[in-house]
């Protein structure tokens, strides 16, 4: 046990039912990946609805998609990718016991997440202003084709659920930031940050698909 020889046989971060830190870390990571699997299938329902309605009326999706702002969508893509990079770097720093740098990267990730939500807020309020709302609240008249509200139902549900995940991710990042500042995470034990990172990258990955599907149909 080269890496744990400096610690006691049973370090304080090791829960009683695991025999060693490696077993604990592997278990936590596998659990996190299974959780990500459930997230993929949760979004899967919305992706399925998207695919079905688009295949039924492709022209409607093309017409309605013109109402979305490509520059804002692209900006948010860049913001989210950058936040993924800072998240990955935060984990790298905690692996190297650079707690202060790690905390700085986490704060940067939080800031990018906030920028993402602010941009989203402006997009939403513009749509609400125009009456481009889901389902029965839809009042806009500028789109040709039958049932344009379906597109906006799909749009708001997909981006809304994704937005909620960004919000939840910010909470989780705040939690590991607090743990980092308290020096509870270090090169021997950084599983919470690693798992929050996995979650954050999945949120990024889902947006990577949402962006072309919703904004770039043209």
């Amino acid at each position: 046990m080269a890496t744990t020889s400096t610690h006691s046989a049973h370090p304080d971060y090791l829960q009683h039912h695991f025999s060693d830190p490696q077993q604990q870390q592997e278990a936590a990571k596998l659990g996190m990946w299974i959780f990500l699997l459930t997230e993929v299938l949760l979004f899967g329902g919305l992706f399925c609805a998207y695919v079905i309605y688009r295949s039924w009326d492709p022209q409607l999706f093309i017409n309605a998609n013109k109402e979305l702002s490509v520059p804002l969508g692209a900006l948010n893509t860049i913001v989210l990718i950058t936040s993924s990079v800072t998240m990955a770097l935060a984990i790298r720093c905690v692996q190297l016991n650079k707690s202060k740098q790690s905390a700085a990267y986490l704060i940067a990730t939080l800031a990018f997440a906030a920028v993402f939500l602010v941009v989203k807020y402006f997009e939403y309020s513009h749509k609400i202003h125009l009456g481009q709302l889901p389902g029965q609240f839809y009042t806009y008249t500028g789109i040709e084709g039958n049932n344009p509200h379906i597109f906006f139902s799909v749009y708001f549900m997909m981006t809304g659920l994704h937005g909620l995940h960004v919000l939840g991710g910010m909470g989780a990042i705040g939690w590991v930031l607090w743990k980092t500042v308290k020096r509870q995470l270090h090169s021997e034990y950084y599983t919470p940050m690693e798992n929050v990172g996995l979650y954050w990258h999945l949120v990024d990955m889902i947006w990577i698909f949402l962006f072309p599907l919703l904004y770039l149909i043209g």
Partner: peptide, 24 residues
Amino acid sequence: VMATPVIGITMVLLVLERVAGIGI
């Protein structure tokens, strides 16, 4: 773990259908 998330989103859609009339 693989099937249950789909009933989750289905129930959310059903609730939204009743509350907001999303029309799906």
